[in-house]
Design a protein around this nucleic acid. Structure first.
Lengths: 226, 226
DNA sequence: GACCTTCTTTAAGATTTCTTTAGAACTGGT
DNA sequence: ACCAGTTCTAAAGAAATCTTAAAGAAGGTC
């Protein structure tokens, strides 16, 4: 589950954003000033921070500096004044993106997704490859190797296999897989995921014909065991 | 660790700048006049120099000339009077950038980063050539050679090919390519990068007609494999 | 200022991937 | 063995992504 820390002293705006974020299937925690936010951030990790520039007790810039001392979590800054960012644009304090109020909530969501995508991409290299049983997944190269053969997977197939391989043993429902890979809410039945699973299996079996790699857990979902 | 030499006889200002620079993770050394600064600079290399124009014993201009005899380190000049720079500008003393006091520290930091980025660009020669499969890229000469033929690439094309060749195997999304080459945020779809890729391929194929050099990873990006 | 190169934008067409559908096959319980 | 619920898979239409060409914009040079 992707967790987002929302820091804004304007409760109305914060709640508006909150609705949109939750709607897209993310989990939010709200803070109304920098000090409070910092305390929350120290306690548990977040995947992204949305930050208001003007806040009581500790402004966004200061908060940003503090956070950057220990973390590279993506930060999206909100500001009421256009002028502020003409100067900062660049950006010294380690803000990854920013928006001027008032903004279009949909655009905000698009930027949030872009940031999350990017930060996923820039994970440290050692966490980017997985050895799962008979095959080896290299995220940076976007390749799956099995008995010296490279298996061609599409982007979606790759993400699904990576998810399952990364968390060997854990069962994922097709809905969970959908949300993890598509990064959006997957309401209702999910045939799509099943089809993809089927296609992945077909490709894997081209290399190791009768081996069961992705297991079906009846009534629950799928997993890769060892 | 990036080291910055800060030369200013006004201690208050120097300390203010110092705080900001350290905050961004750089290491600073302070000097209060030109002679002292020169002595420090002779002893150890710095990645950037921030220099006040008006100083006792040796002014900024003189210091600058001295340094330029041995080094191309980026220099950022500070001055209290607007008029000064009408004179300095174009004086070919090798100042890379300048700011008028009083200045916005954040803007200073932005400029420092810009300078460092630019100078990073001109790194030492040994790390600058790459052999990637059939062709050889020489960053210092800005040439790409392939089967004894030199391929003429434009600046952008060159940077893209260099990025991919330098990190053989790694997949770069067009957005990542954009950010790496253009050094700015690349929101949204990036046709521009795709067009450049297409143009590069065309030029490469003029030498090796049917060889696939830049691979397309569908839905993900591009890479050069071996 | 005219000319040339490079960069960016646009758009149409080709290609690949994704989603949906629907029937077949499978599983676990009775 | 049968049934209901669930999963699998083939196929086709929909959607997204990529390629390429072409034209306009920007920048540099003589």
């Amino acid at each position: 589950m992707t967790k987002i820390l929302l820091v804004d002293d304007d409760v109305q705006i914060a709640e508006l954003i909150d609705v949109y974020i939750k709607n897209d299937g993310y989990e939010t925690t709200m803070a109304t000033d920098g000090k409070m936010a910092l305390a929350l951030f120290d306690k548990e990790p977040f995947d992204l921070i949305i930050l208001d520039w003007m806040m009581p007790r500790m402004d966004g810039l200061e908060f940003c500096k503090q956070v950057r001392q220990t973390s590279h979590v993506p930060i999206l800054m909100l500001s009421a004044r256009v002028g502020d960012f003409d100067k900062i644009q660049g950006l010294t304090t380690g803000v990854d993106d920013y928006m001027i109020k008032p903004f279009n909530p949909l655009e905000l969501m698009a930027r949030i997704k872009a940031l999350l995508r990017r930060s996923n991409y820039n994970r440290p290299v050692e966490s980017l490859s997985v050895q799962a049983g008979p095959f080896f997944i290299d995220r940076a190269r976007h390749t799956v190797t099995m008995q010296d053969q490279t298996i061609r997977l599409t982007a979606r197939e790759f993400e699904i296999l990576y998810l399952l391989a990364k968390h060997k043993g854990r069962v994922y429902s097709s809905e969970e897989i959908f949300e993890a890979v598509w990064q959006e809410h997957g309401d209702g039945s999910n045939q799509t995921v099943m089809v993809h699973i089927s296609n992945i299996r077909e490709k894997l079996h081209a290399v190791v014909p009768h081996e069961v790699i992705i297991q079906t857990v009846w009534g629950v979902g799928y997993k890769i065991e060892t």
